[in-house]
Write a protein that binds this DNA or RNA. Structure first.
Lengths: 190, 190
DNA sequence: GCCGTACTGATACAGTCGTGTCAGTAGAGG
DNA sequence: CCTCTACTGACACGACTGTATCAGTACGGC
């Protein structure tokens, strides 16, 4: 048989978790099949059996990462009704936590890969996350402006502020300055 | 001899230009020595002679990219005295030009690589560009606020707005919405 | 007991990677 | 003419890549 399709099983999700951990530590680029297999206590043959190909494994890991991201967004939304500025502040608090740095570096790496290979398992990753985040911010906007051009521009700008500040923080580690930037801009904007 | 050091020569800069073009088209990840050598009309032996190693070649290409970036920043600065908002608008105009997309995708890729490998030729890339851009914005601030925490936060926020909007634009291609976001926020902020 | 499904891992293949070696060429300076 | 330097490119090495094959095991249903 040419290409075996992926299989759903308990063992599979268990391996995805372990591979996810490995990728968080070593990056997506350095994730070859053999090292990953060893790290998760398995072999390349098993990975191939469960995921069909390396692309299948990467896809599963990326879906896992996106699942975490969506869960965070949902948690922020359900933390209680709030206006846009409060939501943004909550998001920044999550983004700027040192605990989340590996996840966010992986996010940037996947984003970059997604801009280059418009075919691979990456493909829709970058566009997808933009929509996920804009969706949450849109829910926090008043129904009146939500669907106007100005409303879309408003949440786009706030998302840009968050992501630009994130890039800065990941490179410089200067949490104080970047947090002052986000909060200061938010105050001024409110 | 263990590791041959890099050599400066006319042929070298010629090859760097060609390699730079290749990387703009194929990305940094897909830049293996043999394909690059073929594309620039050379061979791996020559690349090794001129750059010492692959890391040397990548470093040279990245320096070339940074040179272009700095030239653009200098051009924006010398276009005439202007306040911060005008500078930011000029920068966005440059960032959002479709012509510059390949360069900016390469920028994101290098940024991501720089966050992962803190050793390679990438190392200081991310932190370096943050400082380059903040430097330009700082020059456009009044001397009174420039060195205050609020001043640093202000230019950090504007840089974040630009870069976040850039990420959005590169993923979605929606120039209208992202431009409205930058300009709208700028008007409101001014 | 028996069978089928889920899963395992050793082994091999062809290809590509960065690196290393080295004989050889073009051209300037003596 | 000779020689030195800059440069060239063919070739090979060992390591690593994703993929493929396949005999073998564990275990629930019959």
């Amino acid at each position: 048989m040419a290409a075996m399709t992926a299989v759903a099983s308990p063992r599979r999700t268990e391996i995805v978790d372990a591979a996810y951990q490995y990728v968080l530590e070593h990056g997506l680029a350095g994730a070859s099949l053999r090292p990953v297999a060893e790290a998760v206590g398995s072999s390349t043959g098993v990975l191939r059996f469960l995921f069909g190909s390396k692309a299948g494994l990467v896809k599963a890991v990326l879906e896992r990462a996106r699942h975490d991201e969506l869960a965070m967004l949902a948690a922020v939304r359900d933390e209680g009704a709030a206006d846009l500025a409060v939501i943004v502040a909550r998001l920044w608090s999550w983004l700027s936590s040192p605990d989340h740095r590996p996840l966010l570096v992986l996010w940037v790496e996947s984003y970059a890969a997604s801009l280059l290979d418009t075919d691979g398992p990456w493909a829709t990753f970058a566009r997808g996350t933009v929509e996920d985040w804009l969706g949450l911010l849109g829910q926090a906007q008043s129904a009146r402006v939500r669907n106007t051009l100005a409303g879309r521009a408003e949440r786009t700008a706030l998302l840009a502020l968050l992501r630009g500040a994130l890039l800065d923080l990941l490179a410089t580690g200067d949490r104080k300055r970047t947090t002052a930037a986000v909060m200061g801009h938010l105050d001024r904007w409110r």
